[in-house]
């Protein structure tokens, strides 16, 4: 069956709500409208307004109320309408969602999911395209998940709802319309497992979320030029799968991390650090990155210059010291 990623998320919510009466879905426009991306389409009609409902327009209140409901027997899933509109909820997320289990010594867990449509590439105007994953990944106590395939969208969301800990579920907006042949329900690898999406022997591309299709396309193009690239899809940023990433880089000896978010202090920087800690003696070249520039996300007029694309990935792969020459970009005195 051909399914879009958005439909797979919708099916995951519907199946979770059918199986467990305590699963709730709430947020802004998630009721009659079915969410601005239609991920909650039909849920209010099937489960009623007390299980899938619109709330007042206040993100901190939404997440804060979810905390209370999770404390008292429910498994809330809340939708933040867009990445940048989750920021009002950040205090709730950082100070309570992430810390409740720890500050109650395990007595109060929060089985809740915060769904965040994120990242760009859909021509959104300002404040609609932020890659905000680093804020969450940097906050201990949260799990951070970002599917790149249709099957993962279904399976990881089901796992997120079932998880005893809070999950920030990052949905790459440009992938909502991605299609695949998938028979639902489907179960893929669990949290904390990265997957090799394409095998290769010359270098590893590590990617997640919206960067995964870019990395796969780059690997196809590289193959045409005779270079074999392996592509690792992280799937969950927290917990992180060091083993799969390190095994791939040890095998290929070269690594490029591809991420849409700004590079500085980002998840991509964390990945580079972890790879060099674990794979230093297997590396033939420094680990490089292809990321968004360190600028506020540029709305559509300039976004094509910002988004890491196939060409930039291939150019970066070319700089992996294939001829033992140092990377001119980072030579001392080069800037």
């Amino acid at each position: 069956m051909t399914v879009t990623l958005g439909k797979a998320l919708n099916a995951a919510l519907r199946d979770a709500m059918r199986e467990d009466d305590t699963v709730l879905m709430f947020g802004e426009d998630v009721g009659a409208l079915g969410g601005v991306f239609r991920v909650t389409d039909g849920l209010a009609a099937e489960f009623g307004d007390d299980r899938c409902f619109d709330t007042p327009l206040a993100e901190s209140g939404i997440v804060g109320m979810a905390v209370g409901m999770a404390m008292n027997g429910f498994r809330p899933v809340v939708e933040m309408q867009f990445d940048a509109f989750a920021y009002p909820a950040f205090e709730q997320i950082a100070s309570h969602v992430a810390k409740m289990r720890n500050r109650t010594r395990g007595a109060v867990g929060l089985p809740m999911v915060i769904r965040v449509p994120y990242a760009g590439g859909i021509g959104g105007v300002e404040h609609h395209s932020d890659s905000s994953e680093a804020y969450y990944a940097h906050t201990p106590g949260l799990k951070v998940v970002t599917p790149a395939t249709v099957a993962d969208a279904y399976s990881l969301l089901r796992e997120a709802v079932a998880d005893p800990d809070p999950v920030v579920f990052m949905e790459a907006k440009k992938l909502y319309w991605a299609k695949d042949e998938v028979a639902l329900p489907v179960t893929t690898e669990p949290f904390g497992t990265a997957v090799v999406r394409r095998e290769g022997s010359d270098a590893t591309l590590v990617a997640y979320g919206p960067a995964v299709p870019v990395a796969l396309e780059a690997a196809s193009a590289a193959a045409a030029e005779g270079r074999s690239l392996e592509v690792v899809d992280l799937r969950t940023l927290v917990p992180f799968d060091d083993e799969t990433v390190a095994a791939s880089v040890r095998k290929t000896g070269r690594c490029v991390v591809v991420a849409e978010a700004a590079g500085f202090a980002g998840v991509s920087a964390e990945i580079v650090a972890r790879v060099q800690e674990r794979c230093f003696h297997s590396l033939w070249a420094p680990v490089l990155r292809v990321t968004g520039w360190d600028v506020p996300y540029p709305p559509p007029v300039l976004e094509k210059y910002h988004l890491p694309g196939v060409d930039r990935v291939l150019d970066t792969v070319d700089r992996l010291q294939w001829d033992d020459a140092p990377d001119p970009r980072f030579l001392a005195g080069s800037r």
């Binding site: 901190s60 404390m71 309570h96």
Partner: peptide, 18 residues
């Protein structure tokens, strides 16, 4: 963190009422 527990009270109370 001032007042941040107030929405939790709403959630707990609403859950009980449900």
């Amino acid at each position: 963190p001032l007042a941040t527990h107030a929405p939790h009270a709403v959630g707990v109370a609403h859950a009980a009422r449900r």
